[in-house]
């Protein structure tokens, strides 16, 4: 598990150019949306766009490096090696998550720095709460990532395409760039309830509350409690379905099925 995290980190930091490449979308899209807020005269909400850029980096990392990673590994024949190694797959996934989070931090810092220098968004933060919220949000997000990887395990190339399909709508409904839940949300209440099942949604709600003191959907503590529950739940689902799929894979012989 530690080893997997380290491998991930080596592959990120051993290739400094990788950072340059991976910051592209988070930096530019958060810049564009900040400018959008600015251009319509709603500059007081630019902080939302910067925060969105930070979180989209992690969300992208969850989708592209966590969820579809096993599929890549499978094609490379690496997955069989994991399976036959004594470490549990869940542990490997946790290792990958830790590696992914640490590896995405530079991107997040750069997005924040650029947003800060260019726009000076107004912040009214209680930093202790921000730290806890951030940690819990990432925990539940990466737990979701683990669940997704276990699902993608049964699919092949479809996983890539599913990522492309999922990335934007989830970004939208979870309110990466604007409040999708609570009194500021344009969505009907029923929809707000449904989208709250995505950990990112309540995470964003909690982050907005703790960072900008903006009105939330539910109180910060309820958000945090729900995030903790979801983190545990997704982790459990991931562990369970990995076991089940591993068994199924072994029975049906799909584990070592590679496209080429």
């Amino acid at each position: 598990m530690k080893a997997r995290a380290l491998v991930r980190l080596w592959s990120i930091f051993g290739e400094p150019l990788w950072i340059v490449v991976s910051i592209g979308f988070p930096v530019l899209s958060s810049l564009a949306l900040s400018l959008l807020y600015y251009s319509i005269g709603a500059g007081n909400y630019i902080g939302f766009a910067v925060l969105g850029g930070v979180m989209v980096a992690f969300w992208g990392n969850v989708l592209w490096s966590m969820a579809s990673q096993f599929n890549w590994d499978k094609q490379e024949g690496l997955f069989e090696i994991y399976l036959t190694s004594p470490a549990s797959i869940t542990a490997i996934l946790v290792g990958m998550s830790v590696g992914g989070i640490v590896g995405t931090v530079p991107t997040a810092v750069i997005v924040t720095a650029i947003g800060w220098v260019l726009f000076h968004p107004a912040v009214a933060a209680s930093w202790g709460a921000v730290a806890i919220t951030f940690a819990l949000t990432l925990a539940s997000l990466y737990a979701l990532g683990m669940t997704l990887s276990s699902l993608y395990l049964v699919y092949g190339r479809e996983a890539e395409s599913m990522n492309e399909v999922l990335q934007e709508p989830v970004s939208m409904v979870s309110g990466l760039y604007f409040p999708s839940v609570g009194s500021l949300s344009p969505f009907p209440f029923a929809l707000q309830i449904v989208v709250s099942l995505i950990p990112l949604t309540l995470g964003m709600d909690a982050l907005r509350q703790s960072l900008f003191s903006s009105p939330g959907f539910v109180s910060l503590w309820v958000d945090l409690g729900a995030l903790a529950v979801m983190a545990v739940a997704f982790l459990a689902i991931a562990a369970f379905s990995l076991k089940a799929l591993e068994m199924k894979g072994r029975r049906d012989g799909t584990i070592s099925v590679r496209i080429r």
């Binding site: 709603a42 007081n44 766009a49 934007e168 939208m172 990466l176 604007f178």
Partner: peptide
């Protein structure tokens, strides 16, 4: 159909940002 989802969602995001920004800034 699936390929329509992403551009649709991003169009919705920016449109909602406009709506949200304007209505909550008294514009």
């Amino acid at each position: 159909v699936l390929r329509t989802v992403a551009p649709f969602a991003s169009a919705m995001t920016v449109s909602i940002i406009y709506w949200f920004g304007v209505t909550h800034s008294g514009l």
